[in-house]
Nucleic acid binder design. Structure first.
Length: 255
DNA sequence: ATGGTAGCCTTGCTA
């Protein structure tokens, strides 16, 4: 089972890229973030015409996540538990072919020292709590998405550029590591020790052309899923296209 | 060098 996560930065702006990617890459599951549209506006027909089913949560202009899959999608959660007052569309979870998968879009959290950063840390704590609860199930679990956290120095072109950024704060990295210590495996890093393998390059300052990126899109695997991890990688192809998302797909294969 | 770009369907916000 090939599972891919991709922050597309608007599904409407990126629909051609997404359909091309489905046909070229043939994922069994594609986890999308930042679809930036309400459920009713999601281009469901185009996705289904290509041969994938879709489960979607969304809101106007911001956030929004989706799960595309070849097989039947049984939605198990359309929001992250732990805060009924949280109205942002950032979490969707489903059972597909005996695997529990989630599409996760963490808050960016900038600027630091504001309520936005507090919301990010609270969201990470809620995700850790729920990730621990999911371990109690018999199923393999794959939590994939844009975590908006740079895990380590090897995952950024220059940490000095990010010292005042929410993605590189010690509190952000510690909260991310707590999920790993709960028993989850970073599918990319588990199989590829090379430094400076990125999943995001800012649109500004020629970051893509200079390969100055960060690795913030992650697939976190429960032990039962990690036992089946056969391959993983980052597909830089979509980032190099015209009118690309600023993120590129990250994938893993469960045998 | 406190800039730069992209998507939202705004005239600024979010990233």
């Amino acid at each position: 089972m090939k599972i891919v996560t991709w922050n597309v930065n608007s599904i409407k702006a990126r629909l051609g890229h997404v359909v091309d990617f489905l046909k070229d890459s043939q994922p069994d599951v594609l986890l999308l973030q930042e679809t930036k549209c309400p459920e009713a506006d999601f281009p469901r027909l185009e996705v289904e015409s290509a041969g994938w089913r879709a489960a979607v949560v969304g809101q106007k202009s911001y956030n929004g996540v989706a799960i595309l899959a070849r097989e039947k999608i049984e939605v198990t959660a359309d929001r992250l538990p732990g805060d009924d007052g949280d109205a942002q569309s950032r979490y969707l979870e489903a059972r597909i072919g005996g695997v529990r998968v989630a599409s996760v879009y963490l808050p960016n959290g900038n600027p630091i020292g504001t309520e936005k950063f507090a919301y990010k840390l609270a969201w990470l704590a809620r995700l850790e709590r729920h990730a621990r609860d999911l371990l109690a199930s018999e199923e393999p679990v794959v939590l994939g998405g844009d975590y908006n956290v740079i895990p380590a120095e090897d995952d950024v072109y220059d940490p000095q550029d990010w010292v005042n950024d929410a993605l590189w704060q010690l509190d952000s990295r510690r909260a991310f590591r707590r999920i790993l210590w709960a028993g989850y495996t970073d599918a990319f890093r588990a199989l590829d020790p090379r430094p400076h393998q990125y999943s995001f390059w800012d649109y500004q300052a020629g970051r893509w052309m200079r390969n100055e990126g960060i690795r913030i899109d992650h697939l976190l695997l429960s032990p039962a899923a990690a036992d089946r991890l056969g391959a993983s990688g980052i597909d830089r192809g979509p980032r190099g296209r015209e009118r690309a998302s600023d993120h590129t797909p990250v994938w893993c294969r469960l045998d």
